[in-house]
Amino acid sequence: MNGFKGRGTGFLPMPPRERRALVGLVLFSTAAFLPVFGRIELGGVAVFGWFMAALLVGSPLVLLALLRAERMAKRRGSR
């Protein structure tokens, strides 16, 4: 899990918040593609579709929240 952390792993370091957001989005997307979600339906639409709809609206919001948190942290750091 610490693949992005540092020199020992061969990857350049990534801020922890961004690493968590990246891992979260990748895991969510991977889970959505599990075959079971293609078979179950909710409101006439496969649950896979609802996962994709959540990703469509949710992923930019997650990143906007992350950028805001980084901006706030920077402001606090500069005081």
Binding site: A21, L22, M52, L55, S59
Partner: peptide
Amino acid sequence: AGAVLGFPLATI
């Protein structure tokens, strides 16, 4: 959703 996910990936 793939296109939209691409933007957070691009951002990070």
